[in-house]
Design a protein around this nucleic acid. Sequence first.
DNA 1: GTGAAAGCGCTAACAT
DNA 2: ATGTTAGCGCTTTCAC
Lengths: 347, 347
Amino acid sequence: MATINDVSRRAGVSRATVSRVIADNGYVSDEKRRLIEAAIAELGYRPNTMARGLRSNRSDIIGAVVVEVASPFYAQMVGGMQKGARAAGKSVLVASGYAVADDEAHAILELIDRSCDGLVLYLENPLRADVVEIIRKSRTPVIAIGGSECPVATARIHIDNFSGARDAMQLLLDNGHRDIAYLSGGLMYRDTHERLRGIGAALEAHGLGLDDIHVVHGDFSESFGFDATARLLGSGRATTAIFAGDDDVAAGSLLALKQAGRRIPEDVSLIGFDDNFHARHLTPGLTTVRQPVDEVGRMAAEMLSRILAGDISQPAETTVPTELIVRQSVGRPARQPRRKESIALAR
Amino acid sequence: MATINDVSRRAGVSRATVSRVIADNGYVSDEKRRLIEAAIAELGYRPNTMARGLRSNRSDIIGAVVVEVASPFYAQMVGGMQKGARAAGKSVLVASGYAVADDEAHAILELIDRSCDGLVLYLENPLRADVVEIIRKSRTPVIAIGGSECPVATARIHIDNFSGARDAMQLLLDNGHRDIAYLSGGLMYRDTHERLRGIGAALEAHGLGLDDIHVVHGDFSESFGFDATARLLGSGRATTAIFAGDDDVAAGSLLALKQAGRRIPEDVSLIGFDDNFHARHLTPGLTTVRQPVDEVGRMAAEMLSRILAGDISQPAETTVPTELIVRQSVGRPARQPRRKESIALAR
DNA sequence: GTGAAAGCGCTAACAT
DNA sequence: ATGTTAGCGCTTTCAC
């Protein structure tokens, strides 16, 4: 492999001048520039990223920690980051934190060790103290997305779970539902709390409170959706609508409803969260709340690039709106002999 | 940030000895080792990967090019690679090639420039000649997965599309179907050809040939599935079973069938390929062929690690089996007045 | 505008 | 078993 030395010799200039051409900074006369470019082409020279990084202390790599790259949600986010990073001539190195504190710590350390210029962190656990220390020392800018608190974040991108959940709940209420179950994700997630607040706000607007619906806590998984729904149906509780913590939960819930012979939305309405790839492929199409995941990823990478370029005029906190996607899984509840007021309330 | 110099000074040894401890090679007395480890801990020393890489010409990074990280199929594959790489203490740097020759070339060059120790390539286009040259020169080992030819591959992992397609077609034939449409992916993919061969083999075993079914060429997309199926139905052609090129195509096909009021599998049977996440969530559950994508990713990373460790006893070519996943979308065709032999043949 | 010189932090011969 | 030495390929003052 040709080195910068070979190029400089061939072009009859010093290494410094070649360096100026590659990095495209400093003054170089047109003549020498042409000579150098010719030499580069002839030799098939490619700058050595390691040597560059060692010397300049930059790697042009953005490190990203997500919960699990293999899952569509995060994969899309990473895809967005790649696009944003590419525009700035940077690459993305991803590590999965598997929502486990030590794995997350491990992932971050790995990225720091690789001299990532900046980090995008989607964590599910509070940062381990030693990791906080190391990030601080390394002076690496950090963009925190959603998830848990992050004391080292230079900026934060945050999906508007509050409004998303509020809109979803409002849709159910506006349709006349009053016997509603919310299959919530775990309380360790900030998302969960925010969504609960959003749900509370929607209920309040209808003169109700969280106590008036049935909240079940579990996790963001299909099996939770299935089990919780099966239990719900078995309990004999009147439920005309289910709000699932996310689309995976909704998929499980849907399966349980179908197995129990319930029609959707005639017997039970169902609404999800995320607008996963499969949401529209469920039958009926799942009404849900879209989180603009790819866009969030792109934004994170772009923000980081700007920060790295020395642009400090970054808002510390950005909120990205969600969008209600109406498909076929929500309808009006059937007349319910057991609760007269539900008819009265349904305009 | 502390350097190896700080550590050596603090421990009262030479840098070389510290290096031996970090890299865990060469002889170091227990006493000095203890001293060094203490110094490392006290200083919070972390080796600089760039310096290391520059000197040793290894990066412990595996580069991967897939079609598109954001898509669930490749995301899972990358997830598998991460797992395999992690076991060997390596990281995975992913780039997307978007199935565009120049993007693929660009992605590979980027990974090579980053001094990846090895590459895992899932490409959809023949390698550009200059890229072949550069990979050769860099002497980077390459694992090629599926897709197109790759003249620089050290080893090849290959999903058994032939058997998968053969099994799927056989299922249809065994169920008594004779009026079958195959909604194929593009002919530029090796996968497509192999599946066609598999289909041919199944047909042959039943005394038939490819001419006896209706093959439509398109791409691996939901919209192709929808359009092709709509056209099929509009043509008045008798079709009792549709074999979709992949599960996305199947999803589109299913939608078109439902919109046309066809019952699945009573009126038309449907089979897919991939076993995507949503395959089981379609209604009815989609019978399909599972490709063990994550496992392929893991294998690729492990193989590469072994090759990098100097283990040459690698089989040059590995084939990973597919698995027929039987759900509810395939059944026996209804009696067909138009073709008596289809009843006779169905044992 | 260009070159000379000095290292970035580490590893790998080689010597002891 | 440990230290000495000589760079890996590049960038960046600092002169001129």
